[in-house]
Design a protein around this nucleic acid. Structure first.
Lengths: 237, 237
DNA sequence: AGGTCGTCGATTGTTGACAATCGACGACCG
DNA sequence: CGGTCGTCGATTGTCAACAATCGACGACCT
């Protein structure tokens, strides 16, 4: 009897108005940060933001507390709140734990994969390649995260899903920074073909290996970007 | 250059005053909930709490937002905020992912275990048995969590540590409920002897097995308590 | 000139009052 | 007697004003 999430928009029946300023502000701010419209490290000024959103500072501050707790903002009392900056160590950590969790998710799910899961995974894979073909980098970031999110959602493991959402935010932040710096994130169109094939197949060990190499590739790619970024601070491509 | 946590009290130099109402309120509220002074399912009334803490509703609401995001409170807009209730499914999830993460932590740490780690682990194990000998159940809950936390902290993996803190809160909540219901939580005095011995030894596979069985034991114990509790519903929620 | 200390603008922290919403109780109607 | 609908108290959501703190600039002293 603990169920019924107030924030979930996909509950079936028309829970239309159940909305509040702080939730809209939080959503809006989050997507602005994760989408790359606000650069990492920059300071958020409450009065300015409140004016931009057309609300007072009260709800805005509550939204900020929420995002601080989500880990995408950093607050220093009496001084300021800043968008978190990204480091090589962070990337290593995120990818290492993501490898672990995604493997765990597949282990949990493996014998319970049903047709709905397979269909959904294929659907999101197609959506991903479509955004890549369309050259829409911003959408392809979301599509890739949505693709990987399929398995987390399918486990029905709510705590795992919560952790994944935290990781997802970080990844989105890194990739957005990457994209903003290079102008092109450049995911290969066939980058998830093996992943999809193995996820639909029956060789769990092979799937483990695929996750391993997939994550290593991702970590190397992201770290290479950050290395260059730290060696040449402030350079335009 | 992203370092310097404002919330860490163990930084070395006297960061005395860097405190704010909302942080104190959040700490106070959290320990009251996790310590079992506020029952799961009960509603928090802002005006009442604000009066008890001697502050206005502003900072209190921000603290609540924080705890909601930490997962120990649940908020329904325009209606109320409640201490989360615990379910059998939650226990299964927590222990399954905890087994996974604690194994991951040992794998990360294994070849880097130094004398400081061994000393600290032994020290906390002694502290744990001491609280059990003293019959201080509340302290033994914290001591057990502190003991297990050693390995997470030793990895230096900040994201892993963050996730552990989330799990820790849930566990503390379950155990506190358990304790309040039974009057005695009853951890066996030698419950962590094998765990300690293997954690200090050189057989990683054996350590994996120990974690596995340790978690299974813990999950069964907690679930048995919840089963009995759900069969005899004591109060409304 | 170099360093120290006071002052000031900017920003966050806090407060009390006011508005919107919810859930329940009770009157009213069939 | 059962059900429906309006009203009302309680609770949360929002706002604008005020206080505390910080960081930097500039005057002052040595």
């Amino acid at each position: 009897m603990t169920a019924r999430r107030a924030t979930s928009p996909t509950d079936g029946f028309p829970r239309v108005p159940k909305d509040t300023f702080r939730s809209r502000i939080a959503d809006s701010l989050r997507s602005a940060i994760l989408g790359g419209d606000i650069a990492p490290g920059s300071q958020l000024v409450e009065t300015t933001l409140a004016a931009q959103f057309g609300v007072s500072r009260g709800p805005l501050r509550e939204a900020i507390r929420q995002l601080v707790e989500e880990g995408i903002l950093e607050a220093v009392p009496y001084t300021g709140t800043y968008v978190i900056d990204i480091s090589v160590k962070d990337v290593d950590e995120i990818y290492s734990i993501r490898r672990n969790l995604e493997t765990f998710a597949f282990e949990q799910l493996w014998d319970r994969r049903d047709e709905e899961f397979r269909t959904e995974l294929r659907r999101r894979h197609e959506a991903l390649t479509a955004t890549i073909d369309a050259g829409d980098d911003k959408a392809s970031i979301l599509a890739e995260l949505s693709f990987h999110g399929t398995v987390y959602e399918a486990t029905g493991h709510s705590f795992l899903l919560t952790i994944w959402h935290g990781l997802r935010g970080r990844l989105q932040l890194y990739w957005a920074a990457h994209h903003r710096a290079h102008g092109l994130r450049g995911p290969r169109r066939d980058g998830h073909d093996d992943y999809l094939r193995l996820a639909l197949g029956n060789d769990l060990a092979a799937m483990r290996n695929e996750i391993e190499s997939h994550m290593r590739r991702g970590a190397e790619q992201t770290k290479a970007f950050l290395d260059g970024r730290e060696r040449l601070p402030e350079r335009r491509a």
